[in-house]
Design a binder for these strands. Structure first.
Length: 416
DNA sequence: AACTAGGCT
DNA sequence: GTATAAGCCTAGTTG
């Protein structure tokens, strides 16, 4: 699949195995560096969120006229759907009954006054139990959080645990507030640089897709361009909702979406979803052919591979079991893209780690799939921002420009 | 340990 | 007729 790119693109002479080996010491370095947390901010937030959780809990139990454990999905499901008989028309089921997942409850949010409160309750208790309570306990003697990175064996992505610093909240006012507790020390500043739509750029490049390549080469808004093609409109006539649909379809393509999956994600009928997918592949012939060829090759060879040669074996790609086979087909499409994005980021980490040695007190402190965060002296800010962008953008030379967005701030929310 | 849910890219 | 969008990590309940 990568032959054409390997011929035309200027790629560093390095294999995936070498990338994996060379990034390891960088990972140990980032773990050792750690990131500074403002403990007093966390404690304030914890009290605030704790109060809101308690208030919501009392109101919900009063509204439902029951005494149950709200953290028990099975007890909640029983009350909502067996006792109160709330509508279950198109709700997903779990093994034991109707699902109470946020997406399902949202569908029936007007059927009972407790439902919106339950959604708020869930949001706040997640933040409290996963971040506000555990993080302070993990702060080391140097006042910083130190995670542990691993390279995932199936995709090559880097994963983080104890604590996971790759899922720091960002959505909602409390999510953002938590992100604000990740701070730079005095006289220092955080620089966050992330690849703009790297996976779409990779699939456009490897698929040699004409329209998408054009959009990226001309630095256009790729989702709006896709919307124009799918909905047969001029770019300047595309509505916000159409752009949102196109964005969902673009992501869906990377994951091997089906009409059903798209209809669920967009809350539209399967027929409508089917139409959009048809229009999408009609407009993006290159991507359509790439997906078909990738699955064909995977069947023939029993594995797929990334740009730098990392292989993932797909044991069920020719299985009789349809669900298992189709799952492997989705992996066949996604793994080369996700894995290549991981390799590009790891190359940047290797190169950046070397360059940062020229700046005292500047160091990598986070790596989050398509983003790197560096802590540096305020006096070095401008130079560091330019350095990071250059290293990340120029590590691999694809037939499509790779774009990096760099921001800075005194905390992680500001730098995002 | 399995299940359900939900945080992030 | 059946399941249905990739990859991770963490927490609480249940039996």
């Amino acid at each position: 699949m990568w032959q054409a790119i390997k011929k035309t693109a200027k790629l560093p002479k390095i294999t995936d195995t070498e990338i994996r080996t060379q990034v390891e010491p960088v990972l140990r370095e980032i773990e050792k560096n750690g990131i500074l947390i403002d403990l007093s901010k966390i404690e304030l937030l914890n009290k605030d969120v704790g109060k809101r959780i308690e208030k919501l809990r009392k109101e919900i139990l009063f509204d439902l006229r029951v005494k149950i454990n709200l953290d028990s999905p099975s007890q909640l499901s029983d009350v909502l759907f067996n006792k109160l008989k709330l509508p279950t028309a198109d709700l997903k089921k779990t093994q034991s009954g109707f699902s109470t997942a946020a997406g399902e409850l949202y569908k029936i949010k007007n059927s009972h006054p407790a439902i919106p409160k339950i959604l708020k309750y869930r949001e706040f208790s997640k933040l409290k139990s996963t971040y506000l309570l555990p993080l302070p306990k993990l702060i080391a003697a140097d006042g910083r959080l130190h995670t542990h990175y691993t390279q995932d064996a199936r995709t090559g992505r880097i994963t983080s645990r104890d604590p996971n610093l790759q899922n720091i909240p960002i959505k909602g006012s409390y999510g953002e507030a938590i992100r604000k507790t990740f701070v730079a020390p005095k006289d220092k500043i955080l620089v966050a640089a992330d690849y703009s739509q790297i996976e779409l750029r990779i699939i456009a490049a490897v698929a040699g897709d004409r329209h998408m390549t054009e959009a990226f080469v001309n630095n256009r808004d790729v989702h709006t361009e896709t919307a124009a093609l799918v909905f047969h409109k001029e770019v300047n006539q595309v509505t916000a909702s159409e752009r949102r649909f196109a964005k969902t379809i673009n992501f869906g393509v990377l994951y091997g979406m089906t009409p059903f999956g798209l209809s669920q994600a967009l809350n539209i009928s399967q027929e409508e979803a089917n139409r959009y997918i048809f229009e999408y592949f009609h407009a993006h012939q290159g991507i359509k052919e790439y997906i078909e060829e990738t699955i064909f090759q995977a069947r023939k060879r029993g594995f797929v591979e990334t740009l730098f040669g990392f292989k993932r074996v797909l044991e069920n790609i020719t299985a009789d079991n349809r669900a298992a086979r189709e799952a492997d087909e989705r992996m066949a499409v996604n793994t080369p893209i996700q894995g290549t994005a991981a390799e590009i980021l790891k190359l940047a980490m290797i190169n950046l780690s070397k360059e940062l040695k020229n700046f005292c007190e500047s160091r990598l402190i986070l790596t989050i799939h398509d983003e790197l965060v560096v802590e540096c002296k305020k006096s070095d800010l401008k130079e560091i921002m330019e350095l990071i962008a250059r290293i990340m953008e120029e590590g691999v030379n694809l037939p499509i420009p790779i774009k990096v967005e760099v921001k800075s701030g005194n905390n992680l929310a500001e730098a995002k």
